[in-house]
Each structure stands twice: as structure tokens, then as C-alpha cells.
């Protein structure tokens, strides 16, 4: 009984993960501007792989040898996904692949601040 329930939960997680992975890839292919395309993969790495990892944890408990190590991958992806997205957004801005954002008050955005190239550019990732 419990076994069947666990299997059902794992299969549901697999379905959710597969669906969101596919939707993320479709979004990456479909949209027309680089900045819009940047939005699609964030959900691949959050819900898509997250659901696969939950399925893996449930399955490992269902088959007896329980393990929680998948949480590590999930935590790692959750910490690094914003940083890579941030870097790619900076690349888009740097190469002018998107329309120029409005100025922040009287300051300028750090990516356009190329005069002081020897300063560390990324304060917050």
C-alpha cells in the first residue's frame, strides 16, 4: 500500500519535471528577443530538475536504501542558477543585444561602467 503510494508520488514528480523541462526548452526556442529567452531556463533549473530530484529521493526510499544526497544537487543548482542568469543578462547588456535600460537616477549601471576596469565589477551576483 505504502509502496504503491510512494511509486505514484515518484511518477507524479517525474511527470512534473519532464513537463517543466520541456516547457523551458520551448520557451528558449520560441521567444524573439534575447532578454525574453533568458526567462525560460530559470524554471528548468528550479521546478524541472527539482522535481526529478524529489522523485529520485522518493524512489530511493521506496526501494529501501534511502538517501537524501540529492538535496545537495538541488541546493547547488538553486544557488548557482541566479548567478549564471545574472552573468548572461550582463552579456546581453554588454553586447547591446537588448534595448538599453533606463538610467538609475543619476548613476549608471555597473556593466556600462567600463572606465574603471580594474575594479571588481560584480558586487552582488
Amino acid at each position: 500500500m505504502i509502496d504503491t503510494l510512494l511509486q505514484f508520488a515518484a511518477v507524479t514528480c517525474l511527470a512534473i519535471g519532464a513537463f517543466f523541462t520541456l516547457v523551458g526548452a520551448i520557451g528558449l526556442l520560441k521567444f524573439d528577443t534575447p532578454m525574453k529567452r533568458l526567462h525560460a531556463p530559470t524554471m528548468v533549473s528550479t521546478l524541472g530538475v527539482g522535481a526529478f530530484l524529489v522523485a529520485s529521493i522518493i524512489d530511493s526510499f521506496a526501494t529501501g536504501s534511502g538517501s537524501l544526497r540529492e538535496i545537495l544537487i538541488m541546493a547547488f543548482l538553486f544557488v548557482t542558477a541566479p548567478i549564471s542568469a545574472n552573468f548572461i543578462a550582463k552579456v546581453h547588456m554588454h553586447r547591446a543585444d537588448c534595448n538599453r535600460p533606463p538610467r538609475p537616477g543619476s548613476r549608471i549601471w555597473a556593466t556600462y561602467d567600463t572606465d574603471e576596469a580594474d575594479q571588481p565589477a560584480e558586487e552582488a551576483a
Binding site: L38, H39, T42, F78, N86, A89, P104, W109, E123
Partner: peptide
């Protein structure tokens, strides 16, 4: 950034 639909892109030079 983790919330789909919004991506943080940059910080102004004085933060």
C-alpha cells in the same frame, strides 16, 4: 532570479 518571470540583471555602480 529564481522566481520565473523576473531576472535581476545589474546593479548600479554605487549599489
Amino acid at each position: 532570479t529564481l522566481t520565473p518571470g523576473t531576472v535581476s540583471a545589474d546593479l548600479s555602480d554605487d549599489g
